[in-house]
Design a protein around this nucleic acid. Structure first.
Length: 575
DNA sequence: GACTCGTTG
DNA sequence: CCTACAACGAGTC
């Protein structure tokens, strides 16, 4: 075989190969093309001579056969490449995806009941604000803010305690309207949803903007809740867009490649769903502030943050995102947890009381959500704010408060033993590896099936018979590989990103001659953070901390069953 | 696979 | 008085 030193940049173009026997001549040159001392030689002439000299020999015929086979194989590869592009175009500009987001939802619902609150700064939440109205925002008050801080910013701030049931009921009214525009819409949280309105638009011969205008007006009229919306070719951009003309507004990024690229170019990476405080700073440290900044640094990214992050950022730069919107009911819950914060406690008996209480809360939650857990996790936060978790797999799935407590206590005891004088400010329990206690579901692929992967599997379009689980899994696996390939291809084709050759990396080392390409995440941390390691170092002497994990993106989001949504829950969407 | 830690929203 | 939940990537063993 000629695999050693195989076809390189000297390879003849496949297109003109047939009539001129170029590939065969190339093959006949043998494996030594890249050997030193050949640079000056005219390979064209050499191959011509070899060709004519060996013509008709057995060797020649054999090589000819091999060349024919390879040519056929390459043709198949090209066809497959074309097919992949056709079947799943990465930049799908054919869909109108919208993201609908209620404006200051909880606060807005409260204002419906108590209109006098409309004109005063008001927030919903006790210790921490869940939402605040736009009057309060004038003072710098934000959701997620501790209420004592908010009070300092705005002493007149009116605090209203939250009533989830009320908000859920209101959200249901809104969802009924959404369903008219896309019956398969996707709830992202109580007050957020994704819709694909492509079908609606064409059926009613309306453009997406007037459709969304109409929808928003309808929601406001019927429910008295104002919503904002983003209209875009995919969910990622729609989500970002819904924030642009908030409140009570909408924004559209047209379904054109140029418009999308331009929109992403100056967009701060932080605006993208999935980029938080930490990742933002890490990216900033290598000069990436906007999605457009990703491109010049592209060769560095997978080295610094891993392949996943590279893929993710490439998609940010390109403005790619999913267009598939599906009801949230198809997702499955992965864990149930409860935790609570309190003043520092060091007393062992008192800690056991807290644990007992957590176990009781957990029991209620498990009953409500109809699950048992095969894995039990104890979470604690030390007085230093250091967080630790300890996990066990009880001999059977657990759900009763007694079981939860009994299996959790040894973990707590071990922590107390390992950390002399341990003082906690938080204690929590989590059950994962869930086993459903719901009645047997009729639908095999439905959420109730315990060992079933929650991920929904899309059967190949030509397949109209029922597919079995094995096949479904395989299809899912194939899909994943295909997605990956498409990503890469998209990247190199549409942006002119030239493969992953070593030259690219060298070319791109603009700012970072001094940067070691093997930079670990820890090193990045050291560069961008000024943290001195907090307590626990004494513990670590005997029990060293794990090295930093090169975390990055998650893949398939999922959401708790929508019948019992936790309003605080938000979803993550990547890809 | 089990366990742990960390990030994100 | 900087919360509570859930998901998940990734490293280690």
């Amino acid at each position: 075989m000629t695999s050693a030193g195989g076809p390189s940049d000297k390879r003849p173009p496949e297109s003109s190969s047939a009539e001129k026997n170029d590939t065969l001549k190339y093959q006949l040159l043998g494996p030594s093309l890249t050997k030193a001392g050949q640079d000056k030689v005219d390979q064209q002439k050499v191959s011509e001579i070899i060709y004519n000299a060996s013509k008709g020999s057995k060797f020649f015929n054999h090589e000819q056969d091999r060349d024919r086979n390879l040519t056929v194989k390459i043709e198949r590869i090209r066809k497959e490449k074309a097919r992949l592009r056709e079947t799943r175009p990465d930049r799908d500009l054919s869909q109108y995806v919208i993201h609908v987001d209620c404006d200051a939802f909880f606060a807005a619902v409260e204002e419906l009941d108590r209109p006098e609150l409309k004109t005063v700064p008001m927030a919903v939440g006790k210790g921490v604000l869940t939402t605040c109205n736009y009057v309060a925002r004038q003072f710098g008050v934000r959701s997620g803010m501790a209420s004592f801080v908010a009070k300092k910013l705005c002493p007149q701030l009116v605090l209203v305690s939250q009533n989830y049931e009320k908000y859920s009921a209101k959200a249901q009214e809104i969802r009924e309207i959404l369903a008219q525009y896309d019956p398969l819409f996707e709830s992202a949280s109580v007050d957020e949803a994704y819709l694909n309105i492509t079908a609606y638009c064409s059926a009613n011969n309306m453009d997406p903007e007037e459709t969304v205008q109409k929808m928003r007006a309808q929601i406001l009229e019927r429910t008295k809740i104002s919503v904002s919306a983003g209209i875009a070719p995919n969910a990622k951009i729609a989500k970002i867009s819904s924030n642009i003309n908030k409140p009570n507004g909408q924004f559209r990024v047209p379904n054109e490649r140029k418009a999308v690229m331009e929109f992403m170019k100056d967009l701060p990476v932080r605006k993208v769903n999935g980029v938080g405080r930490v990742f933002e700073r890490e990216l900033d440290s290598i000069g990436i502030k906007t999605c457009g900044d990703v491109y010049p640094q592209r060769a560095l990214l997978s080295k610094l943050f891993g392949e996943k992050a590279f893929q993710f950022l490439a998609q940010c730069y390109l403005g790619l995102g999913r267009t598939k919107i599906e009801p949230v009911e198809t997702h499955e819950r992965k864990s149930v947890s409860t935790e609570s914060t309190f003043h520092e406690i060091g007393d062992k008996e008192e800690l056991r009381d807290k644990l007992r209480w957590a176990a009781q809360e957990m029991e209620k939650d498990l009953l409500r959500t109809q699950f048992k857990g095969r894995t039990l996790t104890l979470k604690v936060k030390l007085h230093t704010f250091e967080v630790l978790t300890r996990q066990t797999a009880p001999p059977r799935a657990v759900s009763s408060a007694k079981d939860l407590y009994d299996f959790a206590v040894p973990m707590l005891a071990k922590l107390e033993k390992d950390i002399p004088g341990m003082k906690l400010r938080l204690l929590g329990l989590r059950c994962s590896n869930l086993v459903s206690t719901k009645k047997i579901s009729v639908n095999f692929f439905g959420p109730a099936s315990a060992h079933q992967r929650p991920r929904t599997v899309e059967p190949p379009p030509h397949q109209d018979h029922e597919i079995g689980a094995e096949e479904a899994f395989e299809a899912a696996a194939r899909q994943e590989v295909q997605d990956e390939m498409n990503d890469l291809e998209q990247l190199s084709q549409e942006t002119g990103l030239p493969g992953q050759g070593a030259e690219d990396i060298a070319d791109d080392r603009t700012f970072n001659d001094h940067v070691d390409f093997c930079l670990s995440r820890q090193t990045i941390r050291e560069v961008v953070q000024d943290t001195s390691e907090t307590a626990l170092s004494n513990l670590m002497a005997s029990n060293p901390p794990n090295p930093p994990n090169l975390i990055r993106k998650r893949k398939n989001p999922s959401q708790p069953v929508s019948s019992e949504p936790d309003p605080r829950q938000k979803r993550l969407f990547f890809q």
